[in-house]
Amino acid sequence: MKKQQPDLSRRSLLKTLTVGSAATAVVAASGISVAHAKEGNAVSKQNKDGYHETAHIRAYYNSLRS
């Protein structure tokens, strides 16, 4: 009697799907960390280049008083 062999192609498909979803999760996680890093940059940018009273701005304030 011929022994029935399992269909390995179906199992390999499942394996591929598992590996694929794990890879997607890793990519997504790295994407989130990149996004957080980007937000962090935005905040630091504001710290560095936010409002600061310059001669130009002082001249503007003086023009409002006239």
């Binding site: 280049d49 936010g50 409002y51 600061h52 310059t54 130009h56 701005i57 503007y60």
Partner: peptide, 8 residues
């Protein structure tokens, strides 16, 4: 972005 340039 005029604020970064020191303007309003």
């Amino acid at each position: 972005n005029r604020i970064a340039e020191g303007k309003l």
